[in-house]
Design a protein around this nucleic acid. Structure first.
Lengths: 368, 368
DNA sequence: CAATTGATTGAATCTGAGC
DNA sequence: TGCTCAGATTCAATCAATT
């Protein structure tokens, strides 16, 4: 794990490094379309409490002055638009971004993302199981933070490991609200004097879920507000590469030490439950070519309707002809139909789903 | 309960009425500084494309009403700024506003609120206990909506019934995430032909919590997007006055009928409708995210069979793969198996049931 | 009548490979 | 780029129907 000051215009990707400097400048120096995921935990120092400063650092006297408040929001918006644009440039066409924030900044971030062309996929609520209480009893306990997950643009591809997240959630699809504790205990980095090394260190459990769900092993994850390196630590553990950018030397030092201790998981542990979509496609006709079904044989629908298999793998029923999917959909009057799970064939007097035969072929071809 | 077309410039407050017309125009006709609370459920600007079907091929009855269609983000922003400005004018200096939305619009609403001078007090997450799933498995289940609670301006007073909400929450401070079911069953208003009277009727439990927490008996609550009148019904039940504004005659008619039937509920009934909380279910995968188990680690069955843990919380044994329950059942040749009590892990040479780890997490999350 | 099974439904930005 | 078409995909609740 090394800290580098990147050369402007460098073409090679500085993988698994912490880059020193302002994230906007550094991102502008990196090659376009080179990153699979951006995870960002931007600052939200709006400075609206107490002294208020304009972008030029002059002090604002009237805290209630609407124009000055707008001025301050405007500065934050400009900063947000700039780093988002630089990050978006770095994303591959099929890349995605996660940004985390609280009600102080997340609305401004969300608008900037939409205006920049990002396409929101979900907003996710990190529901803290152990938040700090509201000591004065003046408001609700601020018990959550919000993450926005977006693809690079409308209609763009993105990585979503649906089955892996479903497995993480004991077999039911993962929801947009995640219950996770805040970062405490031995996971929380401390300085030598025992103070917290970073004021808002995120829990590794949060990054685990983000990276398992929206990246694959070997992917490149960029964190422009690297802090003490939670993103890097989890990325490294999960066999992903990372690029961290951090302005503060003390955070970089803490992150560097932390990353040296991370042990990457072995490949077997990294494998996740895959979806059927990822499995090789088997044309229905192959069942005939391989002799698993005979041309002329009858298939039966769940409602007992029959169709005859022809040599080219098409079906003919009394009223319809076409693929196993088309005839199934026509018989059901449905917009679509998965013929594989719809049709059955007869063996020894029993009805067996044709999908069994597809699984046989897949198993054989998997060995080869 | 009457429906009136308000006179422009009318000085008297039309309490407990549903006003017909465009909410911006109507609000401009009402007297300045006259309302204690605004609750607004504006159009979400969903931007749905084609039809969506469930896996069983039934069609999802989506929101496709004209009132939810805007030409662009700019058009939506303009609409938002206009109704927010009109609403803010109506608020007393110590008044407050709640706005509910989803990721499609809530960021734009939040920015417009901040820019208009509202001071955000909390964002609140309505975690739906029974949301509609993501049928295509392409994203996370959209399981929550977001509410923004704001005072009229920075430093302004606002009503917050801390103790009442604490009592509603079984004696602990109310948090910013509320678990409540969506509006179904007999609470859901139907047309004579049995269709839903309004596509997005909000549950009374949600309004109950809002009004108990941020208004006092006798307060005036304005809802500029009244719909079928959930805000009015709960306000009436709780001894608050309301002003509803609604453009669509069919919604006004349904709301009028509904409001005629409202009787104040006894307190016990209210408590039960609002204190529904989900049992904390701990997915096995959370043990990995939390670092209590390490991906790649081996679990051991009572008979000494081993299985390896993967990053997504699934298990792999010599012959089986799946959840802790599935692999346990397969190894035992049993129809089902409680993996929590079946599997053990090794620490310091000793075998420990994984259920110990679940109890640890339950204890942490039970604090909430 | 109790218990079980089956149908219905909800603010949803919901496909993708191959030609 | 657009078109065609294979084929993958759901959770909790409420009701109705059946055993």
């Amino acid at each position: 794990m090394t800290v580098k000051t990147p050369k402007v215009g460098a073409a090679a990707l500085p993988l698994n490094q912490i880059l020193a400097g302002d994230c906007i400048e550094v991102m502008r120096s990196l090659p376009e379309g080179s990153v699979d995921l951006v995870f960002a935990d931007p600052p939200y120092n709006l400075q609206l409490r107490g002294d208020l400063h304009r972008p030029d650092n002059s002090r604002v006297d009237a805290v209630n002055d609407a124009w000055d408040r707008f001025g301050s929001f405007e500065a934050y918006d400009r900063f947000t638009r700039d780093w988002l644009a630089a990050a978006r440039r770095l994303l591959k066409p099929g890349g995605a971004i996660w940004v985390i924030g609280s009600y102080h900044n997340i609305f401004r971030v969300g608008v900037a993302m939409q205006d920049a062309g990002f396409w929101i996929l979900n907003d996710v609520v990190w529901r803290k199981s152990n938040p700090m209480p509201n000591f004065r009893g003046k408001r609700l306990t601020n018990a959550h933070e919000t993450l926005i997950w977006a693809s690079k643009s409308e209609g763009a591809k993105y990585t979503f490991n649906y089955e892996a997240l479903k497995a993480l959630n004991e077999g039911v699809q993962m929801r947009s609200d995640w219950v996770l504790p805040i970062c405490t205990g031995h996971e929380r980095l401390k300085t030598e004097s025992g103070e917290k090394a970073h004021p808002t260190q995120k829990p590794e459990s949060l990054l685990h879920r983000v990276l398992v769900g929206s990246t694959n092993p070997g992917d490149v994850v960029l964190d422009p507000f690297f802090g003490t390196g939670t993103t890097g630590a989890v990325a490294r553990m999960l066999g992903r590469s990372f690029i961290g950018i951090e302005r503060e030397a003390t955070y970089r030092d803490a992150a560097t030490k932390r990353l040296e201790k991370v042990r990457p998981l072995d490949r077997a542990a990294l494998e996740t439950t895959t979806s059927k979509r990822a499995e090789p496609r088997i044309p229905f006709g192959q069942l005939l070519e391989r002799g698993l079904l005979r041309p002329g044989e009858m298939l039966v629908s769940p409602r007992g309707k029959a169709a005859k298999v022809r040599v080219d793998g098409s079906l003919v029923s009394a009223e319809h002809r076409g693929s196993i999917h088309q005839v199934g959909a026509a018989l059901e009057g449905a917009p679509s139909c998965n013929g594989w799970t719809y049709w059955q064939f007869k063996r020894d007097g029993k009805l067996i789903p044709i999908d069994i035969l597809r699984q046989q072929l897949r198993a054989e071809q998997g060995q080869a």
